[in-house]
């Protein structure tokens, strides 16, 4: 399988803002990304972890050319994001969903919002109708197509936002903390939808999250700290590094924490367990 996203030693810092100019201080530019190199393959389900200010959202914005690297390069299916005339191609390939479900819906009716990207791309109305219906059915929001966004719950709004992205038929969806503002039920709905898109439609998913249990269910976890990638592996391997994760201000999933503590107290248990079911099984074996 080929790679869809290729990041080659990406550095990024914001230009000094006007305040530092006024104060005439030569404040050192704060590098937000310090040489990120990684590849994400087609069809992968990747979680990006990191505490606030680790640069994970900044990195996400590089993936569809909202921000451009100050040094290094990002390639989306071999297209350099620096090519300005390709930005719309890139954004069509890599869709983005944000944290606040309220602030990313544009239209006053659900189906028109889903159509928004297609309207911008100049898709024929007939084809548009078809794609909008498909996208709404994919996220299971078809019966709400004529509702106004403010009549929906947070999870439903977020699913509409996802539908708006998949209507473009992207290869990859980047979700920047899509569940941070949702209640548990909304979170479940959104996660289920994301997983289904990955499994059934083969869409590459990059999910930035604070929730360790969300990350535990992916294929690959990338941990960022201070603008650098410090861990990049399958969830089992990443979460077994309990101390390293804690040192960068991250939690580990409850299961991992339990296993870790048990092991520290001298219990012989497989430390690569990440899911609850596996944990129950292992504990039953020991208790038996």
């Amino acid at each position: 399988m080929g790679s869809i996203i290729k990041s080659d030693k990406v550095h990024f810092h914001y230009e000094n803002d006007y305040l530092t100019e006024i104060e005439n201080t030569k404040a050192p530019v704060k590098e937000i990304l310090k040489g990120i190199s990684l590849e994400i393959n087609k069809g992968e389900f990747v979680a990006v972890l990191g505490h606030n200010g680790s640069g994970k959202s900044t990195f996400a914005k590089h993936l569809n050319a909202i921000l451009l690297p100050t040094d290094g390069a990002i390639y989306i299916e071999d297209i350099d994001t620096k090519l300005e005339n390709k930005h719309f191609d890139i954004r069509q390939r890599v869709g983005m969903v944000f944290q606040n479900p309220d602030n990313q819906l544009v239209a006053t009716v659900v189906e028109e919002d889903v159509a928004f990207a297609l309207e911008n791309l100049g898709v024929e109305p007939k084809e548009m109708r078809k794609r909008v219906d498909e996208a709404l059915k994919a996220v299971d929001m078809y019966e709400y197509r004529e509702h106004a966004p403010h009549q929906l719950s947070g999870g439903q709004k977020q699913r509409v936002a996802i539908a708006g992205v998949i209507a473009m038929r992207p290869e990859c969806i980047v979700l920047d903390e899509p569940t941070a503002m949702l209640d548990p039920k909304g979170r479940q709905e959104v996660l289920k939808t994301i997983k289904m898109l990955n499994r059934d439609y083969g869409i590459t998913i990059v999910i930035i999250t604070h929730y360790m249990d969300e990350a535990a269910e992916t294929d690959r976890v990338i941990v960022m700290d201070e603008g650098e990638v410090i861990l990049d592996d399958v969830p089992k391997k990443v979460f077994s590094q309990v101390e390293l994760l804690k040192s960068v201000g991250l939690d580990v999933p409850q299961v991992t924490e339990l296993i870790y503590e048990l092991k520290k107290h001298g219990l012989d248990i497989d430390e690569e367990i990440v899911t609850e079911d596996e944990c129950i099984e292992a504990l039953m074996k020991i208790l038996a």
């Binding site: 028109e112 100049g122 992205v165």
Partner: peptide, 18 residues
């Protein structure tokens, strides 16, 4: 930001669903 991500570029060449 969300509109930029969904390829908004003004009224030029835009089509409508309805």
């Amino acid at each position: 930001l969300a509109m930029t991500c969904r390829c908004y570029r003004g009224g030029e060449g835009r089509t409508r669903l309805k």
